[in-house]
Structure formats: C-alpha cells, structure tokens
Computed example of a mutant assay.
Amino acid sequence: MHVLVPLDNSDPAQEALEHAVREYSDAEITVLHVVNPNVSMYGEGGVYAYDSVIKSRREAIQSQFDKAREAAAAHDVSISTKTVVGNPSREIVAYADEHDIDHIVIGSRGRDGARRVLLGSVAERVVRRAPVPVTIVR
C-alpha cells in the first residue's frame, strides 16, 4: 500500500501525518508539499520575484519535512518527501494518479459556513477529484 500525505505548515496537516504513520505503519508513505505559484499570495512584488519566491518556499518546507521524518521515526516508520509547484488540489490528485497511490490522508482546514461554500478547501476538492479513497483528519 502506498499512502500520500499532503503537508503544509498547518496543525491539521501535522495531525494527518500523525494519523498516517500510526494507522498505516506498514505502508509506503510519501509526504507531498505543493508550492502554490499564485503570485497574488506573495504581495505586489511577487510577480517580479517569482523564481526566488518558489525557491524560498522549497527551502522553507525542508524544516517541515524534517519534523515529518521525526514524527514518522517515533513510530518506526520511514517516509519519502516530494515538493511540486502548482495548484494544491490539482497537484495532489495528479500525484496520486501518476504514482500509484492507494490512499490519501489529508488535514482539514476546518472551514465552515459561507467561507467554505464560497472558497472551498483543498481537502474538499481532493475528496471530489481523487482516484483513491481519502481520509480527512481534523
């Protein structure tokens, strides 16, 4: 079994990782971080510094990957890590489809009400589009 755990810098993502290493300790686990290239997220100067912003985000996730490896090691599990650039929900689904993933474990952002209806969430889009079962961890 191959389990995919999308990771960002959020508590729900960390909870998802903990769940995955606890519940799927015999599985191959890949931790995936998606760098969102939407320059509007990085302020007005983001469009001019696109390459450096992407490079910076790739470097910044390394400390999260180190924490993920430590969490997995606490359960005697090893993980592999991967970073891609793109729309988070699309890239998660594409990665699952292209790498023979059997299950996705993803953290919920906990959005509710009008915000959820208007904006949606990465987890919700992944659930709707994923070619495999998805567990959402709160």
Rank of each mutant, 00 (worst) to 15 (best):
D51M: 08
V35N: 09
S52W: 07
N38Q: 06
K55N: 14
V31T: 05
M41T: 08
E28G: 10
E44S: 13
H19K: 08
A27K: 02
S52N: 13
I29F: 15
N38Y: 12
V39H: 11
L32P: 02
E59R: 09
V53D: 00
G45M: 10
E59H: 05
M41Y: 15
D51F: 07
Y48A: 10
I29D: 13
A49Q: 13
V53Y: 00
V39E: 09
I29L: 12
Y42F: 11
R57C: 05
V39F: 13
E59C: 01
E44C: 03
Y50E: 12
V34Q: 04
V34A: 07
L17G: 08
V31E: 03
R57G: 00
R58H: 14
V31L: 04
I54N: 00
H33E: 01
E23Y: 15
S25T: 10
T30P: 07
I29V: 11
T30S: 14
D51C: 10
N36Q: 13
A20S: 07
V31R: 01
A27Q: 03
R58K: 14
E44N: 12
A20G: 03
G46M: 04
V35I: 11
G45K: 14
R22D: 09
Y24S: 08
Y42K: 02
A16G: 14
Y42G: 01
Y48N: 12
A16P: 05
P37M: 03
E23L: 13
L17P: 05
I54A: 00
V47E: 14
L32V: 05
Y50H: 13
H19A: 08
A49I: 09
E59G: 07
A60G: 12
V53A: 00
V21S: 01
R22C: 06
R58V: 05
Y42W: 05
Y50I: 04
H19V: 03
A16V: 06
N36R: 12
T30R: 10
L17Q: 05
H33N: 11
E59V: 02
R58P: 02
G46Y: 06
G45R: 13
Y48Q: 09
Y42V: 01
A16L: 06
Y24C: 09
Y24T: 05
N38W: 09
G45V: 10
T30L: 07
A49L: 10
S52I: 07
E18Y: 10
H33D: 03
I54Q: 00
Y24F: 15
G45C: 09
R57T: 03
V21L: 02
A60R: 10
P37N: 06
G46N: 07
Y42Q: 01
T30C: 08
I54R: 00
S56L: 07
Y42L: 01
N36H: 13
S40Y: 14
R58A: 09
P37A: 08
Y50N: 06
E18K: 15
A27W: 03
A27P: 02
L17E: 04
M41F: 15
S52V: 10
S56M: 10
D26P: 09
V39M: 15
